[in-house]
Design a protein around this nucleic acid. Structure first.
Lengths: 167, 167
DNA sequence: TTAAACTTTCAAAACATTTTGAAAGTTTAA
DNA sequence: TTAAACTTTCAAAATGTTTTGAAAGTTTAA
């Protein structure tokens, strides 16, 4: 596999993965392109590389900036804007985890909490609703907390957790 | 919030979450309905509750069964088939993690591995491609392993990990 | 100011996914 | 067997999402 093949494979795979996880193809591919580019790229560059329209490029770059994983950069003496991606994989993970948690996980956790706290009327179906949504709430809340801790590199988190278990 | 409100809220939220994560609404809602139902439900029951067509119900039940989180159940003396969901939240999480890993994560990890192992020609762009895809590979591989371990309830995993760190 | 260089917006078009419902298929009781 | 009860399939319709591209907007150099 040579450079071009590898590059194409990476970009298209990243795009497909994005789609599968609810991130659109263009957004994922722009990110992939910037991720492996040693130089900042202009909108023009991106449009050419990925064969996508100006509008599409503009909208998805904005989204990537909203996510905090792509930044604008201006070169002195040039009118054009350039774009670079966050290059540190830990920071990328942290940022993605943070955004997904905020946008997608937290709101669901809130609903689960509310639903699981309705008052029981003693019927089997109400009991089951409460029991099952409570179980999901506990799982989701734990998973969310854990994910954020891991990704936030509280490297001594494992140690702390263990301390609590021991004492 | 009374039972009906809570139930509707849970089902619709679960459906919305599914959509956001690339699982279709009907599939997620059928799962939600079965998750909180103390009794097995027939296709008819599900169609009525969720106002979806027979075909849709059939296809999505099959998918849920493929995922290993919904099962067929037959009542003695009845021709109709009934459906129940896995009720244990740990088992649900395990099953979902396993399937997502198999279908969506593992294939990407393989591509990252292949791409990150191309031979360098010494140019900056090739070096960057290798470096950045390698970083993603390490992250994804670790995250996948970790997720599976956590979810597989190797409850002493944290302990084991710490042991390795200490020794 | 002006106009050139560039970016953003947004309605319409293209594309993709989901849903429907009727026909085909399957199973079972008699 | 047959026919009733039930499930699955699948092409067409509905719905939802993404992409385009041209017009509007913005910024900057002169």
């Amino acid at each position: 596999m040579n450079y071009s093949e590898a590059k194409e494979k990476f970009i298209s795979t990243w795009g497909a993965l994005g789609t599968l996880w609810g991130i659109n193809k263009a957004m994922a591919q722009i990110h992939a392109l910037l991720w492996i580019s040693p130089e900042p790229l202009s909108m023009e560059d991106i449009m050419e590389e990925l064969h996508i329209s100006r509008g599409n490029t503009s909208m998805n770059l904005r989204q990537l900036m909203d996510w905090g994983i792509v930044f604008k950069e201006s070169k002195p003496g040039e009118r054009k804007e350039y774009f670079v991606s966050e290059k540190d994989v830990q920071e990328l993970a942290r940022q993605v985890a943070k955004e997904r948690s905020r946008r997608e996980i937290k709101p669901v956790i809130k609903v689960l909490k509310d639903v699981s706290r309705i008052e029981s009327d003693g019927t089997a179906k109400t009991e089951e609703l409460i029991k099952q949504t409570k179980a999901l709430y506990d799982l989701a809340d734990n998973a969310d907390t854990m994910m954020n801790k891991i990704v936030n590199q509280e490297s001594n988190w494992i140690t702390k957790t263990l301390m609590k278990l021991i004492k």
